[in-house]
Design a protein around this nucleic acid. Structure first.
Length: 393
RNA sequence: GGACGGGUGGGUGAGUGGUUAAUACCACCAGACUGUAAAUCUGGCGCCCGGAAGGGCUACGUAGGUUCGAAUCCUACCCCGUCCA
């Protein structure tokens, strides 16, 4: 008996909302964060680690899985879930983002995106229809349409053109989609232009999807712009459908986006920066490579309930990273995932309790984002420069 | 005792008259990373002053010498390696 996926809104607190996404592979309370398993694996960790860290749903990538191991194989073994032994829900991105991130290896026309494989140089055409077909074989619970993502500093003409083509592609995706045990979301584009966002939202919602994503954000714009566009985007979407902010996932962005009504996130940031030695703490990011951790005989983040912090010292992680020991990457990934997943759990509890506003405030009181540090430093230098410049004149 | 080869910045190791405070890698110190071509990338790394531009000082085993100029050439000495006695 096939279960048809659905979304149910349960409560709200200000702009933030709590609900549940029901899928054939289980229910997931919203708002939630999806660790990214691009190639069918969240780098450095396994499904047991993911479960233990609190992951409920993971994201895979159609472009990468299509190239390797191939969608035919995935279909034959019973789908991505079976292949990677992840028994929870999954979501796949269409490959539209690779049209952006691998833009020097592709050409776009009305029919779709022609990729020159980054693996062996072979050519592969991704059309709206073929990406849906591939995602039906991969078998995720939520699938995404082919879209055109453009950089934040793109010209209005470029953004508008990408938006129009995205609308046409998404209509074709909906047309091609046959599996009713999968949800096909729509993606709103429009860059940083308010009127274009409005137009995209109008067109995409009139095609009609069971859930909507905001795309084309966290692609180089400022935090302010991203938050404003998120707020605008949310206001243009139906309240009874889940809202997915694609590619966002720094701790501060999660809080601010939940505050604006986002229900779903995915992001490589927590796992990628973990492998590069940056670990989250309630005060901000710490660099485990740095000298102060060399002899820190306490958890990376005292009080953290993750496996890493419950078992190992910061000094040990420092040593593992310095020594390039593989265990370090796993332990750091577990910690960062637990950090953001715990945040999602805390927000999920705060919303029905009516305490989300307090949570948000308390979070910002403690947490210093890295670019804020950088900005402050830059400002300090500038002020000093002005001062000494004035002195010499 | 003799014959070769060699001693360069924390390490390995380029450099054989000026463009060299000295390539590169490592180590070390910082920073970045947002729908993953990322266990990656960027910057710094003799000492002193400076925000920077820049300036000053010291430096290629040791001591002399040749030269306008030496890590680079010459002499002596000290070490290290290989081979011959």
């Amino acid at each position: 008996m096939k279960r048809v996926p659905s979304f149910e809104l349960e409560s709200a607190d200000g702009g933030a909302r709590a609900g549940v996404l029901r899928t054939p592979h289980g229910d997931v309370p919203t708002p939630f964060f999806m660790p990214v398993a691009t190639q069918g694996s969240v780098r450095a960790v396994d499904p047991v680690d993911l479960r233990a860290a609190g992951a409920r749903i993971v994201l895979g990538n159609t472009y990468h899985l299509y190239l390797r191991p191939g969608t035919g194989l995935l279909e034959r073994v019973g789908g991505l879930h079976e292949f990677m032994r992840w028994d929870g829900p999954t979501l796949t991105d269409s490959g539209g983002f690779q049209g952006f991130s691998l833009e020097h290896l592709r050409e776009v026309d009305e029919d779709g995106i022609l990729f020159k494989s980054h693996i062996d140089g072979s050519m592969h055409k991704f059309t709206p229809e073929s990406t849906i077909e591939a995602q039906e074989k991969i078998g995720a619970d939520v699938i995404m349409p082919l879209d055109m993502c453009v950089a934040a500093d793109s010209s209005r003409e470029t953004v508008e053109w990408a938006l129009e083509r995205t609308t046409r592609w998404e209509a074709r995706c909906k047309e091609a989609h046959t599996r009713d045990d999968q949800m096909l979301f729509g993606i709103v584009q429009g860059g940083l232009y308010e009127d274009l966002r409005r137009r995209s939202a109008e067109e995409i919602t009139s095609i009609g999807f069971p859930g909507y994503a905001l795309g084309g954000l966290s692609v180089g714009e400022s935090k302010r712009e991203m938050y404003d566009m998120t707020e605008l985007g949310v206001s243009l979407l139906p309240t009874d459908a889940p809202r997915y902010l694609m590619g966002v996932g720094s701790p501060e962005d999660l809080v601010e986006s939940v505050a604006r009504g986002i229900d779903m996130f995915d992001c490589v940031l927590p796992t990628r920066i973990a492998r590069n030695g940056a670990l989250f703490s309630r005060e901000g990011r710490i660099n485990i490579y740095s000298a102060p951790h060399r002899e820190r005989d306490e958890p990376v983040e005292p009080g953290c309930d993750c496996y890493t912090c419950g078992t190992f010292s910061a000094a040990y992680l420092h040593h593992l990273f310095k020594s390039k020991e593989l265990l370090g990457y796993r332990l750091a990934t577990i910690h960062n995932l637990r950090f953001v997943l715990r945040m999602m759990e805390e927000m999920r509890e705060a919303i029905p309790a009516g305490s989300f506003g307090e949570y948000r405030e308390a979070f910002h009181r403690r947490f210093t984002p890295p670019d804020a540090k950088a900005r402050r430093e830059q400002q300090r230098k500038w002020v000093e420069a002005q001062r000494s410049g004035a002195r010499t004149v």
